[in-house]
Design a binder for these strands. Structure first.
Lengths: 211, 211
DNA sequence: ATTTTATTCCATCAAATGATGGAATAAATA
DNA sequence: TATTTATTCCATCATTTGATGGAATAAAAT
């Protein structure tokens, strides 16, 4: 757990933490360019200069948000892995889908931010965007697609990416998709979990028999 | 085929079409807020006012791009459907994945724009973003998940969304993912196709036997 | 050739946006 | 309480950004 995460957890009522949370939410919804410093300040109910006082410039704040995000997702995945250790792959997938959905649905900005990073360019190129997330390798090992973290085939990584993205997509796309499906949030959560299980489990199932 | 698409095809060398293409590319890469009118003008090599002369304001241009995109994806899907008509679902999926990948990899801005629409908010809310794409229903029918277009269950639509997003993700995320996988574009295309088939076919396979 | 129309760019504006200095205020410390 | 330190906001700046009027130029029509 690094300093960013620690600080935000240290005192969630601190102004610095409040600004951070507002930024996380807005960057997730509107992206880097879509979010203005004034939007963040207004969300917290403060002046922009107070924001600069605590976090420096917009880019610094954004990078802190991205770092925090990587830490949190890594932490959560480790947690899930512990919960499913020893089970069959089918069960592990099912439980992991369930738990990750619960987590991400209650923290939608996490998946928003990850997708933003993967799909969009930023005008000023930032070094932070080049950092490759490590959790993909961890998942590959946890799913039995590789023996050790250092030696993972391209195919295995690609399969993990497909799994991860399938989940993230449904979380981040809720507003858009739910309007298409015309259902409540609760129904959406249920449908997403079922759909993910339907799509993902057969591919990795050992007995190769579906349903 | 509506006027937007026709016009762009009418004379691809016309200034209006050139501006349109540049806008499509840049909106796909940077999103609405990430793209400035000056970036578009510079890409074409003209003045901003020439852009305004042909397309009105930025929002008009963006909405034209979105409309065009819906028409193209719809058109392509109909084309693919014709090619696979009568085959088994397994074969249809395999061929569709192959053809859609070919198409989208050579027109990456299409998947970029679709994902942008699904995942991000725009500060000014636009009516265009509310329009629900019809192609999801068409695919559901084509995949045998529903009998007619008017009567499609939520589950069926959700499954189609999962399939479509799985494909779009890999196309739009190429830059990011390819750096992780450390492979060439050609290798990436191959891996993506194989991974999509690996993930998607077993879920829908009638004989429920994988490989 | 002359007139009309269409196209393009230069100069410029107004608003939005990121950023900062310094005064005002609150909190902490001595 | 007096002094120092930390925090917050107001006023303001410079730049970016979307947009426009009008001159200059090219193309078309007469």
């Amino acid at each position: 757990m690094s300093s960013t995460l620690e600080k935000a957890r240290q005192n969630p009522d601190s102004m610095k933490a409040k600004i951070f949370l507002a930024a996380k939410k807005l960057f997730g919804e509107y992206g880097f360019h879509g979010t203005t410093t004034r939007m963040i300040a207004q969300e917290v109910g403060i002046d922009i200069s107070t924001m600069h006082y605590h976090w420096g410039d917009k880019r610094d704040l954004y990078e802190a948000v991205i770092l925090d995000l990587n830490e949190r997702i890594q932490y959560k995945l480790n947690e899930v892995e512990k919960n499913v250790k020893g089970e069959s792959l089918d069960i592990r997938l099912e439980v992991s889908i369930e738990e990750m959905c619960e987590y991400l649905f209650s923290n939608p900005c996490i998946s928003n931010l990850i997708l933003f990073r993967s799909f969009t360019k930023t005008r000023e190129d930032s070094s932070i965007d080049k950092k490759v997330p490590e959790y993909i390798s961890n998942i590959a090992v946890a799913m039995g697609l590789a023996i050790d973290k250092q030696n993972i085939t391209v195919e295995a990584k690609a399969r993990v990416l497909a799994v991860v993205n399938a989940i993230l997509n449904f979380i981040s796309g809720e507003n858009f998709f739910r309007e298409m499906l015309d259902i409540t949030h609760e129904e959406y959560v249920r449908v997403v979990k079922d759909t993910l299980k339907f799509i993902l489990i057969p591919a990795f199932s050992k007995d190769k028999i579906k349903n």
